[in-house]
Simulated scan of single mutants.
Amino acid sequence: MTIRALVWGENIHERVNTVVAGLYPDGMHTTIASALNADGGISASTATLQEAEHGLTEARLAETDVLLWWGHRDHGAVADEIVERVARRVYEGMGLIVLHSGHFSKIFKRLMGTPCALKWREAGERERIWTVNPGHPIASGIPEHFVIDNEEMYGEHFSVPEPLETVFISWFEGGEVFRSGMTWRRGAGNIFYFRPGHETYPTYHHPMVMKVITNGVKWAHNPMPALTSVHDAPNVPVEKALEPIVQKGPTLHEAGEEGFK
């Protein structure tokens, strides 16, 4: 089964910053999608903030197995309606991979329920990423550690919920450490956050970074049909109980009536 991945990019810095444009002339989203398409098991396309409905229409999301998200400069421009639409699809089983500064995106904060804040420093320092869960599928083919020569520092404390799994931890030249690869599950959807990816550095041209992201897409993919019933809260009338019971008290609702949400 080919995994249908959709790479969402804010697509602002590539159009206004000459350094970023030089590194990613067709946009970071295109670079990421191209690397994913090198894997025969993944078919990746792109969407951007500037498109109608940010490229995330109901139909497009219904055809997406795993959504990858990169944003930074204008998280607030993402419409709340679209955020809720993406969240619903994650609950139904669509995978979500949040990259780098996407930690402050509306969708990540919506699903984490926390501020998702951290320390940072933009100094182009060396980052050593340690694989602390080598048996995890996302770490398949990844060495004990690898180095990114120039990156933005992210440091603890990272105010996210306790993860399901921690796969990678980063150490930076300035001394800070960061939980740079973590997973969660929300409803039927798998979520992976991966830290590297500052736009002024060629991080998405790094083979190990793209190997991790490719692995992440495969891990996040849920092959089961969309669990649309995850949103339901049905009223089960007394006469439809699995075992015979008798009504013993007053009710707020009529039998079968939709409840309050």
Rank of each mutant, 00 (worst) to 15 (best):
L61G: 04
P202S: 10
F104A: 14
K119V: 14
T251S: 13
E144V: 01
G71Y: 01
S101T: 07
P207G: 05
F178P: 13
F168W: 07
K106N: 09
L49S: 14
P250S: 11
K248C: 12
E254D: 13
C116R: 06
M28Y: 08
R110Y: 05
E127D: 04
R15K: 14
A77L: 13
Y193Q: 10
E81T: 13
D74W: 00
K119E: 14
T183Y: 11
V66D: 03
G155I: 08
D74V: 10
T57L: 03
H29S: 07
V177W: 03
H231W: 02
E239Q: 08
V160D: 12
D39R: 03
G259Y: 02
M224K: 11
R88F: 02
S180Q: 07
I12M: 11
F178H: 13
I82H: 11
E257G: 12
I97P: 13
E84S: 12
F194E: 11
I107E: 15
A255R: 09
G41H: 07
F158K: 12
N133S: 13
H206K: 03
M208L: 13
L227D: 12
H198R: 02
R195K: 10
G216W: 08
R73I: 10
H54P: 05
G22D: 01
R128T: 15
A33H: 00
P137N: 03
K261T: 12
W70N: 15
L99V: 05
P196A: 07
E125Q: 15
R179S: 04
H136D: 02
E156Y: 05
W8V: 07
R89V: 05
A188M: 07
T131V: 06
K119W: 11
D65A: 07
A59R: 05
H231G: 09
T200Q: 14
R15M: 02
T31M: 08
F192W: 09
G93P: 12
N190A: 10
Q50N: 09
R126G: 15
A226C: 04
V167H: 09
Y91C: 10
A87M: 07
H13G: 10
V78R: 03
S229Q: 14
V167N: 12
F104V: 12
S170E: 08
G41V: 06
L252Y: 13
P134E: 09
G41S: 15
W120T: 14
H103A: 15
A123R: 12
M208A: 06
E258N: 11
V230R: 11
L23T: 01
A123V: 14
I97Y: 08
G155F: 03
E243R: 05
G187T: 09
V78W: 08
L252E: 11
I42V: 11
S140Y: 07
H206V: 00
V7Y: 02
N133K: 05
E151C: 01
R186W: 04
L61P: 02
V90D: 04
M112L: 01
R121Y: 12
N37F: 00
E243Q: 06
G95M: 04
H157Q: 09
K261P: 02
P244Q: 04
R88M: 07
F168H: 05
A62Q: 06
I3Y: 02
R60C: 13
T48R: 04
E51V: 00
R186T: 12
V16M: 09
T200V: 08
G27L: 08
E53I: 03
R128I: 10
P244D: 06
E144N: 06
A188K: 13
